[in-house]
Design a binder for these strands. Structure first.
Length: 274
DNA sequence: CTCCTATCCTGCGAGC
DNA sequence: TGCTCGCAGGATAGGA
């Protein structure tokens, strides 16, 4: 579900919900793990802490408190929502796994059917494990033609696989990889190491443009994505190629192709992308 | 190092 | 209608 635009929109919604810097009354863990076991004791230590902000790094959400920080990754199907006046003993909805009761009357609820998500505290060890090897933020100045080109030079895989590698650039997932390559006019199967610096520069611009436009549209809602305030995104109606197999290319009207690259479906226009 | 596969899970739609 | 199968936004471990 969530790639950079969706996580960014969730972050902004959480900021609205948490803008009065509420205290955590209780961390309610409704099971013992998602992809990894919850660090129960360390999370419980943060009960009573004041949440001072929310940040995004790559596809991670980072919750800042005055007693340490914790992070969340939505995996494929994770979501945060808030409910007002929820009682501690009230029964959770299907696939609600974590509830954070706040002293401002709202409760943050993490729901995740497939449970590929992550909830972890942020300390030196988890920073190293989760964040240390992440590449540049695509919307930051540091992400340039030369930076991308250099990290592609030793990569034998296709360019689409390469830009989904979070050590090359963060935040680009299966949807925005196909979309970006369409706008850059680059075939997804092109060997990453063969891309010229100039074409890498075009790809940088395409990635930035697509992600920025998607954020402006509230992200993409494929089936179940909602932001923290319950609203769907609308960028899915503007996909150029993703999930548009056999439909006419908006530029040249030739049918969009679909293939499978490293187990992920890939969409492109064989006329517009070389 | 890099590359490649399998795997973690549930839900849904296509096809029979 | 009801069943099975394949596929879905991500990331990682483990072996080559």
């Amino acid at each position: 579900m969530p790639e950079l635009p969706e996580v960014e929109i969730v972050k902004r919604g959480l900021e609205n919900i948490l803008n009065d810097k509420p205290r955590i009354l209780e961390f309610q863990l409704l099971r013992e793990n998602l992809r990894d076991p919850f660090p129960v004791a360390e999370l419980k230590k943060m009960e009573g802490a004041r949440i001072t902000g929310v940040q995004r790094r790559a596809k991670y959400l980072i919750f800042l408190t005055d007693r340490g920080n914790f992070l969340s990754h939505l995996g494929m199907t994770g979501s945060w929502r808030s409910e007002a006046d929820l009682r501690l003993g009230s029964s959770p909805r299907l696939h609600d796994h974590v509830r954070i009761f706040l002293n401002n009357g709202s409760t943050l609820i993490y729901n995740d059917p497939r449970r590929f998500g992550i909830l972890d505290v942020l300390n030196a060890a988890t920073e190293k494990k989760r964040l240390a090897r992440l590449g540049p933020e695509p919307l930051a100045k540091e992400f340039s033609a030369v930076v991308l080109w250099k990290s592609l030079r030793n990569k034998n895989c296709g360019i689409k696989t390469a830009i989904m590698d979070q050590s090359v650039v963060v935040g680009v997932g299966n949807i925005y990889a196909s979309e970006s390559l369409f706008y850059a006019g680059i075939k997804p199967h092109t060997r990453a190491s063969r891309l010229s610096c100039a074409r890498a520069g075009g790809l940088v611009q395409a990635i930035q443009s697509v992600l920025t436009k998607s954020i402006a549209a509230g992200g993409s809602t494929i089936s179940d994505y909602r932001n923290a305030e319950g609203n769907a995104g609308s960028f899915q109606s503007r996909f150029a190629v993703y999930d548009r197999a056999d439909q006419p290319c908006a530029k040249c009207t030739k049918p969009i192709k679909k293939g499978v690259t490293v187990g992920r479906s890939t969409f492109w226009c064989s006329a517009c992308q070389r």
